[in-house]
C-alpha cells in the first residue's frame, strides 16, 4: 500500500507548485493510471514515491515504511521504475548486463543473478537478444529490457513513467500485453503514468491530475463519461470515445462500457447488419 499525505513540492528555481497538498492512497495489486497534461505533476509524484525528489513537504509511506533517508533504499528495493526514454535508462553494454545492473547493485550472488536475468528476459520475451547491444535494438525492445531489469528485482510495485510514449503503436501494444501478464503473475501494484487516455482502459482506477492536485479519481469508464472534466484538464478522449460521443449526438443508442477501436468496429459492424 502506498500512502501519500499532503505533499507539496516546487522545483528549484520555480515559483509554481508542482505538487499542491496532494493526498492519495493506493491499495495493493491495483492498476493505477495516472493521467494529466504536461506539467500537471504526475511524473513528480511518482518520483517522490521512489525517493528521487528531495525537499518536499508532507509524508509518504510505502508498505508501512515511512519514506526517509534511512528507508529510501529499502523502499526502492520494492519499486521497479521504468522511464520514458529507452536510451537514457540502458546502463549495461548488452541486454543481459543491463538486466543484471539492479541485481549487481543489491549484491546478489552471481549464480542466482544469472538465473534471475534469464527468467526476467523470458517474461518479456527477449531471451534470444540476451547478448545484443542496445544500438541493435528497437525502442520497444529496449523498453522491454528496462521492464525485465525492473522485474528481475522482484518488486511489489511497478511505476511506468510514460514508458510507452516514445514507442510505435505495435511496441506500445506489446508493452501493455506484457504488463497485463506480469501483473497477474507477480501480483504487482502498477502505477502507469500517461497522457494517452486509451492506455488507461486496463486500469482499475484512473487518477486525473492538474496543477499538482488530484482532479478526478474514478474507474476508466466512469471518467470517460465525464467528457467536460477531461477537456477542461487538457486531455483528449480516446478516439473510440470521441466517436461514441458523436454517435450519441446523432441519436444512436450505445453501450456504456469502454470499447477500444477493434471492439468499436465490431460493434458497429453488428449494428449495421
Amino acid at each position: 500500500m502506498i500512502e501519500v499525505k499532503n505533499i507539496t513540492y516546487s522545483y528549484p528555481n520555480s515559483d509554481s507548485k508542482a505538487l499542491n497538498d496532494l493526498s492519495v492512497t493506493i491499495q495493493d495489486q491495483q492498476w493505477i493510471a495516472l493521467v494529466g497534461h504536461n506539467g500537471s505533476g504526475k511524473s513528480t509524484i511518482a518520483r517522490v514515491i521512489d525517493g528521487l525528489v528531495e525537499g518536499y513537504q508532507g509524508e509518504v509511506t510505502v508498505n508501512g515504511m515511512p519514506l526517509n533517508d534511512d528507508t529510501v533504499w529499502d523502499i526502492r528495493d520494492q519499486i521497479g521504475f521504468v522511464f520514458q526514454n529507452p536510451d537514457n535508462q540502458f546502463v549495461g553494454a548488452t541486454v543481459q548486463d543491463d538486466v543484471a545492473f539492479g541485481l549487481e547493485n543489491r549484491n546478489v550472488p552471481r549464480p542466482e543473478m544469472v538465473e534471475r536475468v534469464q527468467q526476467a528476459l523470458e517474461v518479456v520475451g527477449m531471451s534470444e537478444f540476451a547478448t545484443r547491444e542496445p544500438s541493435s535494438l528497437s525502442g520497444g525492445q529496449k523498453q522491454r529490457v528496462a521492464l525485465a531489469g525492473a522485474i528481475a528485482l522482484q518488486p511489489k510495485i511497478l511505476i511506468l513513467d510514460e514508458a510507452t510514449s516514445m514507442l510505435d503503436p505495435q511496441g506500445r501494444q506489446e508493452m501493455l500485453e506484457i504488463l497485463k501478464q506480469m501483473k497477474q503473475r507477480f501480483e504487482l501494484t502498477i502505477i502507469m503514468i500517461t497522457h494517452d487516455l486509451s492506455e488507461t482502459a486496463m486500469a482499475d482506477r484512473v487518477l486525473l491530475m492538474n496543477h499538482g492536485q488530484l482532479v478526478a479519481d474514478a474507474q476508466p469508464e466512469k471518467l470517460f463519461a465525464r467528457t467536460q472534466v477531461i477537456k477542461d484538464n487538457g486531455l483528449e478522449l480516446p478516439y473510440s470515445e470521441q466517436l461514441k460521443e458523436q454517435l450519441a449526438v446523432a441519436g444512436i443508442d450505445l453501450p456504456r462500457e469502454y470499447m477500444n477501436e477493434d471492439r468499436m468496429v465490431e460493434w458497429l459492424w453488428d449494428k449495421l447488419n
Binding site: 526514454n85 537514457n88 535508462q89
Partner: peptide, 14 residues
Amino acid sequence: RAEDLATAMESRGY
C-alpha cells in the same frame, strides 16, 4: 541523457 541516466541508476539501487 546523463541526468536521466543518473536518475534511472539511482532508482535501480546504484
